[in-house]
Design a protein around this nucleic acid. Structure first.
Length: 269
DNA sequence: CGCACCCCCTGCCGGC
DNA sequence: TGCCGGCAGGGGGTGC
């Protein structure tokens, strides 16, 4: 589920938690993708949330002891601010009571998500993440450089978090449609003008998706339980067999690296 | 090293 | 109606 636009929307929706203190931790299911350590609740109890940032698809809660709570939502994870008196729901794995009101709940049916607590530099998984595509420092030249020497299909490269941060299966297909590029193109064969188009499409699609609160297919919700609306603007994702909105050719679905890719054979080359 | 494949897990949908 | 296979936003490990 959650790619950059969804994670960024969750981050913004949870900003009111900054300044709050964690006054209770209830671990109901420690077996997430990474098993929560036995002392997780004790170590985080009584800490204040001082910052909430995003890196790729990760959320980073800066805590008052200098450590960070690193959260990844996997495919079906949500971080929801619920009334403290609300009874736990199915798949509520961890609940954090916040003194400024409400309880932050980590809910994740498939348990592909993860929570980790520790010093920022102890998190190996975020050390090798590529540039943030919405940062000003991310230029067409940055993207062009990333594609050099990479023979794999551009769609697979876009989803490689060490190449660019935060792009997943939905946005890879939508961005490539925007750029007019087939997902099967070998990354290293893209010309400079094609990588420039790709850069522009990346900005346009991701900016628009953030503006619309991300994409809700089934599970995704922001911190207040609200859905996103970008799925209403999908041009290719999940639309195989339907007509292209631009040329009326049938949208195709192919499998790349075990994941579905969607594209239009006449609009993308 | 780069890449394809498989797995982790639950839920939903379509076909028989 | 109920069972079974396929598929789903991610990512990490393995083996070629």
């Amino acid at each position: 589920m959650p790619e950059l636009p969804e994670v960024e929307t969750v981050r913004r929706s949870l900003l009111p938690l900054v300044g709050g203190r964690i006054t209770g931790v209830d671990v109901r299911e420690p077996n997430l993708r990474l098993r929560l350590p036995d002392d997780f609740a004790r170590r985080i109890h009584h800490l204040r949330i001082e910052a909430l940032q995003r890196r790729g698809k990760y959320l980073l809660f800066g805590l008052s002891n200098g450590e960070t709570l690193l959260a990844h939502l996997g495919m079906t994870g949500t971080l929801l601010l619920r009334p403290t008196e609300a009874p736990p729901s199915r798949h509520d794995h961890v609940r954090f009571r916040i003194d400024t009101g409400g309880t932050l709940v980590f809910n994740d049916p498939r348990r592909f998500g993860s929570l980790r607590l520790g010093p920022l530099d102890s998190f190996g998984e975020i050390q090798h993440i590529g540039p943030e595509p919405l940062d000003e420092a991310f230029t067409p030249a940055t993207l062009h450089a990333v594609t050099r020497g990479r023979k794999k299909p551009i769609k697979t490269l876009l989803m490689d978090q060490s190449c660019v941060a935060g792009i997943g299966n939905i946005y890879a297909s939508e961005i490539l449609f925007g750029a007019g590029l087939r997902p099967t193109r070998a990354a290293h064969r893209l010309t400079r003008s094609e990588t420039a188009r790709l850069h522009a499409a990346m900005r346009q699609v991701l900016d628009e998706a953030v503006a619309l609160g991300g994409s809700t297919i089934s599970d995704y919700r922001d911190g207040h339980g609200r859905t996103g609306y970008f799925q209403l603007t999908f041009r290719v994702y999940g639309r195989d067999g339907e007509d292209c909105t631009s040329c009326r050719q049938r949208i195709r679905r192919i499998i790349q690296a075990g994941r579905s890719s969607f594209y239009c054979r006449s609009c993308q080359h």
